[in-house]
Simulated scan of single mutants.
Amino acid sequence: MNASGNVILITGGGTGIGRGLAEAFQKDGNEVIIAGRRQSVLEDTVKANPGMHFVTLDVEDAADVQRFAAEVKERFPRLNVLINNAGIMKTEDLTAGEKDLATAEQTVAINLLGTFRVTAALMPLLLQQGQATIMTVTSGLAFMPIHPNPSYCATKAAIHSWSQSLRYQLRDKGVEVLEIVPPYVQTELTGPFQAADPNAMPLAEYISETMELLKNPPASGEILVERVRGRRFAEQSGTYDQLFAEWNDYAAKRLIERAKAGQE
C-alpha cells in the first residue's frame, strides 16, 4: 500500500492500538474511518482528530455487519484498506466447566467470526479498487499462549492461520494481506493494570515502530516489532519451553496483583 492517499477503515479504532494506528495513518495523509460498538468513544476520538470519520459497528451481530457494510460502501466508495482490529481479551477458568463458556463463545464471536464477517462483507468493494490491503491484527500470543486468556490466544492463532490462506487466495487479485503482530502493549485491553504495566511496550513506541515496518512489509506479510520476535520464533530458536514458563509465571503473578487491586 502507498504511505498516503488511502481510505482506511479500522475496526476497534476508538481505543488502544486501533486508535493509535488511526491517528498515525491520518497524520501520514490518509482518510481514516474508525468503527466500534461504543459511539461515545468513537465520537471522542473523532473530535480529537478533525477530519476522521466513524461508523458504529457490532462485529458480534451478523445483521449489523451487513448494515455497516452497506453504509461504508455508500459513504466511502474508494475504501482500499481494511484493518481488522476489533477484539476482546477476558480471563477464563477452564476448570469451571460450562460456567465459563459464555466468555469463550463471545471471544470467538467477536475476535474470530467478527473478522470473517467484516472481511467478507467488504471484500467486493476492496476487489473493485484494483489495489487494496487487508490487515489482520493478531498477537504474539498466537504463537505462545498465556493460561489466563485461552480463548483470546486461540482466536489469534486462528486468525494467523486464516490470514495465510487469505493471502494465498488473493495473491493474483491486487489485494495484499498483512498481519500485524503486537507484543504486550500498554493499552486497556485487559483493564487499567495493563495500561500502567512497565513490562508492557509503551503504545506510542509500538505504533511508531509498526508504522516504519509498514513502509516496506516483508515477503511473509508479518509486521513484527522487535519485542515480539522472540515469542514469534521461539520454537525455531529452541527457547519455547523457557519463554512459555516465564510468560505464564508472569501472567499468574499479574492475575493475582489485578485481583488484589480489584481489577479482576
Rank of each mutant, 00 (worst) to 15 (best):
residue 53 H to A: 03
residue 76 F to G: 07
residue 61 D to P: 04
residue 73 K to Q: 14
residue 98 E to R: 15
residue 91 T to K: 15
residue 72 V to K: 01
residue 98 E to L: 15
residue 68 F to N: 02
residue 89 M to Q: 15
residue 63 A to F: 11
residue 64 D to M: 12
residue 57 L to E: 02
residue 82 L to K: 06
residue 74 E to H: 11
residue 71 E to A: 12
residue 82 L to T: 02
residue 82 L to A: 04
residue 76 F to N: 02
residue 99 K to E: 09
residue 99 K to A: 10
residue 74 E to N: 13
residue 81 V to E: 05
residue 88 I to N: 08
residue 65 V to T: 06
residue 76 F to M: 08
residue 84 N to Q: 03
residue 100 D to M: 11
residue 75 R to N: 07
residue 102 A to L: 14
residue 91 T to P: 12
residue 83 I to Y: 00
residue 90 K to I: 08
residue 68 F to K: 04
residue 99 K to H: 05
residue 92 E to C: 07
residue 55 V to M: 08
residue 81 V to F: 04
residue 67 R to C: 09
residue 91 T to M: 15
residue 75 R to P: 02
residue 87 G to V: 05
residue 65 V to Y: 01
residue 79 L to A: 05
residue 86 A to Y: 10
residue 89 M to D: 10
residue 81 V to Y: 00
residue 60 E to C: 09
residue 60 E to R: 14
residue 70 A to G: 12
residue 92 E to G: 02
residue 61 D to M: 06
residue 71 E to Y: 04
residue 67 R to A: 09
residue 84 N to P: 01
residue 59 V to S: 05
residue 61 D to F: 04
residue 95 T to G: 10
residue 72 V to M: 12
residue 67 R to V: 10
residue 103 T to E: 12
residue 82 L to W: 05
residue 69 A to G: 03
residue 70 A to I: 01
residue 55 V to H: 10
residue 69 A to T: 00
residue 53 H to I: 01
residue 94 L to I: 12
residue 61 D to N: 11
residue 69 A to R: 06
residue 66 Q to H: 02
residue 90 K to L: 13
residue 59 V to E: 00
residue 94 L to G: 09
residue 54 F to G: 00
residue 87 G to N: 07
residue 102 A to S: 13
